[in-house]
Design a protein around this nucleic acid. Structure first.
Lengths: 327, 327
DNA sequence: TAAAAAGGTGGAATCGATTCCACAAAAGCT
DNA sequence: AGCTTTTGTGGAATCGATTCCACCTTTTTA
């Protein structure tokens, strides 16, 4: 491998001069520049990032921590993050927790030892241990998807969007709406969306029934099981709101296998549009959190921080309700 | 930030000893080990990877180059890669070309300047410039999805799987099958799958008609357009095979908008199952290339190379045909 | 025309680890 | 007891860049 020393020797200058030219700081004569450029061309020299970042404490790498990449929501967010990072000449180091909370903390540490310049966390909880770790971190950490205490973060409008959706279902005449959620470890999805469901039913003076609610763990299978639990009850609902698309898929599978037709027998709405589902029957009625944009937005906040802006910002992202024929 | 020098000082040993202990090579007394461990605990010290890799020329990072993350196929592959890398204590640096061929080459260079230990490329072409760049690389590069000349690679069984699918369609009575493909820049998808389509029709003594073929660029929109081109012709096919899932989505959208029903008016089959589509109507008949496994397999080959095995291997991945009611 | 400023360059220290080598103490062997 | 291993340790060089500083030359300015 060619190093800056080789370049210096070949171009008959000192390595300081090469470095100055490469980083465009300090003086370098026209002739020296040309000699250096020529040699760099010929040798196709690329500076070692390890050496560079050992000195400068910058790597040009951003760490991204997410629960699972192969979901539509996550991959769309990553797409957005990637776009924004590429514009700013950063690379992305991707890690996946498989929903293991300990790994979130472990990765924050690990990424720092890799000297990333910043971290983007797709949040699944706001546990104290995690908040502490973020505080301790000596690089900026920003969070998407949870309102993380004393951390710059962007939340989705979990409550409002869910209220709107449940209201929409009610206005479409459904009066017996069931709910598939997730545990309360996840404040955004587990608490807010459930609260929105309950509050809205209350507002319409409808009863809140235990047997109309079931909870999963974000997986397709758990959506299947939750739907089954609800439908096995002696009285059955005529609609269901599922808090994530992945679980909605499981729920649909159960309904399909048991010959319930959507929306004839039961109406369905969910969060996190499945791109594909727009083109297939039934077209799901969903809340679209516009994940690419969210990815871009959170990355922009991180870039701001890297450029020295260090107040903590709290934003809420936008959403759109997409109507399908699943209601 | 605490460094190995701080640890050495606090534990009353030299930094050589700390390093020896950390890397478990060479002798370190019991007492010294305990003192060091204690100090490391207290300071929550993590060695700087930049410094480490400057010396060792290893980063523990693998570069992954892919066309676009937010497709089901790519994200599932990444999932598999990630699993395997995590088992082997590697991190993943992810880059996205957005199908720009120049970027493939640029990223191979860039990743090397970042001192990645190896590169996994999800291939879209086998152009000479790319092959050359891979040859020149001073870290192992492995390729998934194309049979890349003189490079360890895993291909999908593009030809055989397509033959099987077209045959299956023929056996189900379809005699007028159209085809939505991609340009021949992509040998695997553009050439092999098309050849399989043509060969199979020939084998059944069916005519190969220009107007039954259209080509897209992997995007949803291009699938829409291709389907339109085919259906605008005076005579219409009664089935269509689409070479990628993303384009199939576009094709379905066109058919839906124009009130063709699948499979009543036109049968459809595709490659790259859409996980979701299994649960919705129509259930697509697809070739599933089991992308997670492919990701695991290609990563395993890279790991072999990193462990010194340096013969070039060529593998073909497996597949399964999944029957739906779209035919 | 002398002093000040700008342009240009190389030497040397530095970042935080690893690793070779020399050396000393303890243990194992005749 | 004397000799060879084994165990344990620290010093110093090294990886490939950046950056401060000293120094020289050329140009500008008063």
């Amino acid at each position: 491998m060619t190093t800056i020393n080789d370049i210096a020797k070949l171009a008959n200058v000192s390595r300081s001069t090469v470095s100055r030219h490469l980083n465009k700081n300090g003086y370098v004569s026209q002739e020296a520049q040309e000699r250096i450029d020529k040699v760099i061309q010929e040798t196709s020299y690329l500076p070692s990032q390890s050496a560079k970042s050992l000195r400068t404490k910058k790597t040009g790498v951003i760490g991204v921590i997410l629960p699972k990449i192969s979901t539509e929501t996550a991959s769309r967010v990553v797409d957005g993050i990637n776009q924004m990072l590429q514009e700013n000449d950063y690379q992305m180091l991707l890690t996946q927790t498989s929903l293991d909370k300990d790994k979130e903390i472990a990765f924050i540490k690990l990424l720092q030892s890799r000297n990333v310049d910043g971290v983007i966390l797709l949040g699944t909880n706001t546990d104290e241990a995690l908040v502490n770790e973020i505080q301790k971190a000596d690089v900026p950490v920003v969070v998407l998807g949870q309102n993380m205490p004393s951390t710059t973060s962007i939340s989705y409008p979990d409550y409002n969007a869910t209220v709107e959706m449940i209201t929409y279902m009610l206005e479409n005449g459904y009066r017996d709406i069931s709910f598939i959620g997730v545990p309360e470890d996840d404040p955004a999805v587990g608490i807010l969306r459930k609260k929105a469901y309950i509050d809205t039913l209350k507002k319409y003076n409808l009863p809140i029934l235990e047997e109309r609610m079931a909870f999963g763990d974000f997986s397709i299978e758990s959506g299947y099981d939750a739907m089954q639990t609800i439908m096995m009850h002696s009285s059955q609902p005529n609609a269901v709101f599922v808090v994530t698309d992945n679980m909605a898929v499981g729920a649909m599978q159960y309904l399909k296998e048991n010959h319930y037709s959507i929306p004839k027998d039961i109406g369905m709405a969910t969060t996190g549009v499945s791109r594909l589902s727009k083109y297939i029957e039934p077209v799901l009625t969903t809340i679209d959190f516009q994940n690419e944009d969210a990815g871009i937005a959170i990355t922009r906040l991180l870039m701001e921080k890297l450029n020295g802006y260090n107040k903590t910002k709290k934003l809420t992202h936008t959403y759109r309700r997409l109507s399908g024929n699943s209601l």
